[in-house]
Design a protein around this nucleic acid. Structure first.
Length: 111
DNA sequence: GTTTTAACACGTCAACTGGT
DNA sequence: ACCAGTTGACGTGTTAAAAC
């Protein structure tokens, strides 16, 4: 019972260590820079400006998705820990009962 | 029915890390 | 040194439940 996490053995505080499964990305962007001939260079700088904007948009998009994935993993990790707590509490209860039984047995024998 | 509150999800930024 | 990925922190929007 209880779902086991891939890297559960890792230190609890170590958030970097949960299982990482990267979905293969098809995103591919080739960067084309400059080479716009214009006397004033204005068009060129506009082009570069657009390029900067485009790069920023790509970065934001990637980070947006990364954040979503990061949260998903964290949630899963927490759920896993909670499951583990449940299991260990149950186990602890059983062991306490067992110990109690053994103690009783021992006392009865001693009399 | 309206307002308030708590919980949750999201997007963004900044700092850090590991790979090249 | 640079770049891409990861994640904590923060602000914001949404929604369900509680209080009025």
């Amino acid at each position: 019972m209880g779902v086991m996490f891939e890297n559960e053995k890792a230190a609890p505080s170590d958030m970097q260590t949960y299982q990482i499964c990267t979905v293969g990305s098809s995103g591919q962007q080739g960067v084309i820079m400059a080479t716009v001939a214009s006397p004033s260079g204005l068009q060129g700088s506009m082009y570069i400006g657009e390029e900067v904007t485009r790069k920023r948009e790509i970065r934001l998009l990637k980070n947006r998705e990364a954040a979503r994935e990061c949260r998903r993993k964290k949630k899963e990790y927490v759920k896993c820990l909670e499951n583990r707590v449940t299991v260990l509490e149950k186990q602890n209860k059983t062991l306490i009962e067992e110990l109690k039984g053994l103690k009783d047995m021992y006392c009865n024998k001693a009399e």
